[in-house]
Design a protein around this nucleic acid. Structure first.
Length: 568
DNA sequence: ATGGAAATAT
DNA sequence: CATATTTCCA
């Protein structure tokens, strides 16, 4: 499990698991420090002599994210050597001595910080800051292997976080609030959220530069449109305005290559939201409105050839005043952009309600997306149904409507259990992780929607790529497209081996007793997973991670620098 | 007022 | 042309 899914995708608790190289010959303080660090969930490797430490970083540089070295009168030379050798490893010097020149030298040699010895817990806990700093600020060559993943992680976390912001607003008077209060908050994908999140790191990449990596990011964009009346600014807009600069810029200029990578990385799994709402302008002073309209919404003339590269631009123009762009400035009409994330939520809601109980108001409620109106949902539902209808030929529908196993029928329309996948972190809608075609009942003809790609490009070809899962079943609309003709097993291409087989409980049940426990489990998992329209049993986590991973691989983003495991 | 679908707009 | 919004109807 070198650099498997959990490693790259699961580091949502980022600072935890950070690998710390501790160089301190004082066994006492060393041990003390180590235990403190470990309490903070850092992984500490102690060295009491330089040479070992040096060889450790040279042999397995990627094994450490940060170093803490103790300097004392006698060992400073050696420490300086270490600093030089560990240039690209964020290194914190700790010491009892207060010699200014030593401190200076350490810093000059690249130390991230020089801390006086009784270390405050706070300082200790915050060492990760240096890691991020280095990850984002290291010059191209200086970005060590161990730091790349950090950067990616952080980028994706920040994006996630921004997603959390989501769209807010609209008539505050409606049921939205109560809905939120009702309990499970779908957001908060991250374990902790207090990371300094200088706003969305907008990784700019040259347009059309290379891979058609996911352009989208806009999970739920409300763009302003022309003039018109009403409405106040959406939360989302507020959020988006208050961007900061530092990180973003850093991101951009530092290693663009990596940035690109990171971007595409996080996108698939992490639907980000990025509103094209610029609305930068004018917070309080009504003055600075400048080009508010601009970029995105200007459908009229999208300048560039890139087809309707519509939005995306991300050019967020830095608004002079970070804070409060809020408010009341804009009152444009909103146009809901059904981005994949939004759509995902939609589908999820629909599935949760049951296809025939899915009603705009309910869906709206379940979606928990502020800023969305019932009309929006109704409209989308209309389209959704249309497609569904079109896709799902007559007989089929009944087929999956009546499951042979009575046990399951209950769930069909009204899930009794909580719906776990209600998590924005769940990159993939259950309904989308399956192979697309490969089955008889879903003949290509008459599916303009899906584009010519053969994938569920349910939409804008330009920026949905990350949402298309090559070789999946089930249309983007979330319709479980299944085989109408019994349990065919398709020579399953990618995607684990969950060949999209019609659920066949009998068969699997039979084989249960013949299989080792693990296999049984696997089987169960597969079954559950193959029936996305059913609520997942509690405790079974949605396929997000694996799927995302697979997706990443599919996109050729597979190789990540390993994030070594606990042992050194 | 609400869902649903047609009409209309972009 | 496809999608989203608006309008209309039950």
């Amino acid at each position: 499990m070198v650099c498997s899914a959990d490693d790259m995708l699961g580091w949502s608790d980022f600072p935890k698991g950070l690998r710390v190289l501790l160089l301190d010959e004082d066994s006492l303080s060393s041990a003390d420090l180590k235990s403190k660090l470990e309490e903070m969930d850092y992984i500490v490797s102690t060295f009491c002599n330089e040479n070992e430490a040096l060889s450790a970083i040279s042999d397995k540089a990627e094994s450490f994210h940060v170093a803490i070295i103790e300097v004392s009168r006698g060992n400073s030379d050696g420490r300086f050597r270490f600093l030089e050798a560990a240039r690209n490893l964020p290194t914190i010097v700790i010491s009892n001595i207060h010699c200014l020149s030593t401190m200076m030298k350490c810093i000059a040699l690249g130390a991230a910080e020089f801390l006086q010895k009784p270390l405050s817990e706070e300082k200790l806990r915050n060492i990760w800051q240096h890691v991020i700093h280095k990850a984002f600020n290291a010059g191209g060559s200086g970005l060590s292997k161990s730091l790349k993943p950090i950067k990616e992680t952080v980028v994706s976390m920040l994006q996630l976080q921004s997603e959390t912001a989501e769209v807010k607003n609209e008539n505050p008077s409606d049921t939205e609030n109560s809905a939120h209060a009702d309990g499970h908050d779908t957001e908060q994908p991250l374990a902790s959220d207090k990371y300094p999140a200088p706003s969305t790191p907008q990784i700019e990449r040259g347009r059309s530069l290379d891979v058609e990596d996911c352009q989208d990011k806009t999970s739920c964009a409300v763009k302003k449109e022309s003039d018109e009346h009403d409405r106040e600014p959406t939360e989302l807009q507020k959020v988006s305005c208050s961007e900061s600069k530092s990180v973003e810029n850093t991101c951009i200029n530092s290693v663009s290559a990596v940035a690109v990578k990171a971007d595409s990385l996080s996108s698939p799994g992490v639907p980000l939201l990025e509103e094209e709402v610029d609305s930068a302008d004018g917070s309080k002073t009504s003055e600075c409105n400048a080009s508010k309209e601009s970029i995105i919404s200007s459908h009229s003339h999208n300048g560039d050839n890139l087809e309707s590269s519509a939005g995306d631009g991300n050019q967020k123009k830095a608004s002079a005043h970070p804070n409060s762009c809020a408010a009341k400035t804009n009152k444009k009409k909103t146009k809901v952009d059904w981005t994949s994330d939004l759509h995902r939520r939609f589908v999820q809601a629909v599935e949760q309600l049951g296809i025939d109980h899915a009603i705009p108001s309910k869906i709206l409620e379940l979606m928990k997306v502020d800023g969305l109106t019932r009309h929006n949902v109704a409209s989308h539902l209309q389209k959704y149904r249309m497609h569904r209808r079109h896709i799902m030929p007559k007989e089929d529908e009944r087929k999956w409507q009546l499951q042979r196993d009575p046990m399951q029928r209950g769930y069909m329309h009204k899930p009794l259990m909580a719906f776990p996948p209600y998590h924005s972190n769940c990159g993939l809608p259950a309904g989308q992780i399956y192979p697309v075609w490969g089955h008889p009942s879903c003949p290509t003809p008459g599916m303009q929607m899906w584009g010519h790609t053969g994938y569920p490009a349910w939409q804008p070809p330009e920026n949905w790529l990350w949402n298309t899962y090559p070789g999946m079943h089930a249309d983007v609309w979330g319709c479980p497209v299944m085989s109408p003709h019994g349990p065919h097993v398709f020579p399953q291409p990618q995607m684990q081996d969950y060949g999209f087989v019609e659920p066949n409980m009998e068969a699997s049940r039979k084989s249960f007793d013949l299989q080792p426990a693990q296999e049984v489990i696997d089987r169960l998992v597969k079954e559950v997973i193959s029936q996305p329209w059913l609520p997942l049993p509690l405790g079974l986590k949605p396929p997000s991670t694996d799927s995302v991973l697979s997706e990443l691989h599919n996109q050729g983003i597979g190789a990540f620098p390993p994030r070594p495991h606990h042992s050194i």
